[in-house]
Simulated assay, not measured.
Amino acid sequence: MILFLAGTSDARELAIEMQQVGYKVLATVVTESAAKSLQDAGISTRIGRLSAEDMTSLISAKGFQAVVDASHPFAEEASKNALNGAKAANVPYIRYERESQRFQNDKLIVVR
């Protein structure tokens, strides 16, 4: 089973793809709406923030084989806790980074 930190629409799609190819996934999210979106797609969820110690305990208790961090790019604390929790539980930590957006100068208006 994989502990999956979901924080974006990209994360939802990745969790669905992983489950479709045979990986059992438990997604952690912060909001009810994010959980509902994943649950509607058949993904098991856990709602609420987790400290590094919480992550370590959850990984050990459920026997997770890896942590996939697809949290929001600005969720630095969640990523740090996931990395430390995975390290303490001695399981692989994988960070999913979505492609950066680039804007053409003629379509970007900077307001100061």
Rank of each mutant, 00 (worst) to 15 (best):
M1C: 13
M1W: 13
I2V: 15
L3Q: 04
F4W: 02
L5D: 07
A6F: 05
T8A: 01
S9F: 13
S9I: 08
A11W: 02
A11D: 01
A11Y: 02
E17F: 12
M18E: 13
M18Y: 13
M18K: 09
Q19A: 07
G22A: 08
G22W: 09
K24P: 15
V25Y: 05
L26I: 10
L26V: 13
A27L: 03
A27K: 00
A27I: 00
V30E: 15
T31G: 07
S33H: 13
A34R: 12
S37T: 10
Q39V: 14
A41Q: 02
I43M: 00
S44M: 10
T45K: 02
I47W: 01
R49N: 06
L50Y: 11
L50Q: 08
D54H: 03
D54L: 00
M55G: 03
S57V: 09
S60E: 12
A61V: 10
A61Q: 10
A61K: 15
K62T: 08
K62N: 07
G63D: 06
Q65E: 15
Q65N: 15
V68A: 04
D69C: 04
D69L: 01
A70C: 01
A70L: 00
S71Y: 01
S71Q: 05
F74S: 07
F74Y: 14
F74Q: 09
F74P: 06
A75S: 02
A75G: 01
E76T: 06
E76W: 09
A78K: 02
A78L: 10
S79F: 03
A82Q: 09
N84Q: 13
N84G: 11
N84R: 06
A86V: 02
K87C: 11
A89K: 05
N90Y: 12
N90Q: 15
Y93V: 01
R95M: 10
Y96A: 06
R98M: 04
Q101N: 11
F103Y: 10
F103W: 07
F103T: 05
Q104V: 12
Q104R: 13
Q104N: 11
N105W: 09
D106E: 15
K107M: 10
K107G: 09
I109F: 15
V110L: 12
V111F: 11
V111I: 15
